[in-house]
Amino acid sequence: MISRLKWSAPISLTPKESVCVHDLIAITPLGGTTAQTDSFPGLGISEQPNWALASVSARHGQVATVHKIAPSLIGTDLPEVGKVSCGSEMTAFWMGPDQWMIMAAHDAHEDLANMLRTGFTSSASVTEQTDGWARFDVEGEKTVAMFERLCPLNARAMTKDSVSRSAIEHLGCFIICWTAGHRFSVLCPRSSAGSLHHALCTAAKSLG
């Protein structure tokens, strides 16, 4: 968020009696007030800022408990290695051993981390991740060709609802496959959103 100062009318003619009001404006990872979209022949890239994210790590000896609680809490089972599980409102993807990222629409689940923290109680450590990551959705017939120019990931072999971690321009990214060979999401650290966006667009342009 950025803060823009908006001054109200003075209460009196004495300057010290003016009131300073903070008008908060949400900005996207790319620094805009609206999400950016880019279109190329056979390929579209769209910034996706309207997602709440929180990571869940099972505590020692609590893996079974976390798996048991998850379906009633997030509406789906926690996925196995390299997989994604989708509920009606929340999606979970595997991050590492006994670790998952939970995603949900921000407008409906702004307090996602606290909700998960309350639900999992002492069985898991939950960390707010919404402001830590940037997400870009990539869709089109040339998506796989774009990834082949960007990273060592075998995107062509990825199946629906799978996730892999790979380096793109030296950035550690999570890549989710929603539709095999056609629709993917790429998540990277928010501070590197500009670099990832530039890399995606450069690769897309090079495909002609």
Score class of each variant (00 low, 15 high):
residue 67 H to Y: 11
residue 58 A to D: 02
residue 61 G to Q: 15
residue 187 L to V: 11
residue 165 R to S: 15
residue 157 A to R: 06
residue 183 R to F: 01
residue 8 S to L: 10
residue 17 E to N: 08
residue 173 C to T: 09
residue 132 G to W: 00
residue 13 L to N: 07
residue 7 W to N: 08
residue 84 V to E: 01
residue 12 S to E: 03
residue 46 S to Y: 07
residue 7 W to G: 12
residue 164 S to N: 07
residue 147 F to H: 00
residue 136 F to R: 02
residue 141 E to I: 15
residue 24 L to E: 07
residue 157 A to L: 04
residue 35 A to I: 11
residue 93 F to E: 05
residue 115 M to P: 08
residue 81 V to F: 15
residue 160 K to Q: 00
residue 27 I to Y: 10
residue 4 R to Q: 04
residue 59 R to E: 01
residue 80 E to T: 02
residue 16 K to H: 07
residue 91 T to G: 10
residue 103 M to Q: 14
residue 80 E to F: 09
residue 54 A to T: 06
residue 206 S to W: 08
residue 105 A to K: 03
residue 41 P to C: 11
residue 66 V to A: 13
residue 181 G to R: 04
residue 167 A to V: 06
residue 156 R to I: 00
residue 14 T to G: 13
residue 86 C to V: 03
residue 197 H to V: 01
residue 75 G to N: 03
residue 165 R to H: 10
residue 100 W to R: 06
residue 136 F to T: 09
residue 198 H to E: 08
residue 22 H to M: 11
residue 66 V to P: 09
residue 202 T to W: 01
residue 100 W to I: 01
residue 23 D to S: 02
residue 86 C to Y: 00
residue 4 R to C: 04
residue 17 E to I: 08
residue 176 I to R: 14
residue 196 L to R: 08
residue 19 V to R: 11
residue 178 W to G: 04
residue 208 G to D: 11
residue 100 W to G: 00
residue 56 V to H: 00
residue 178 W to H: 15
residue 35 A to K: 06
residue 64 A to V: 12
residue 122 S to G: 06
residue 121 T to H: 13
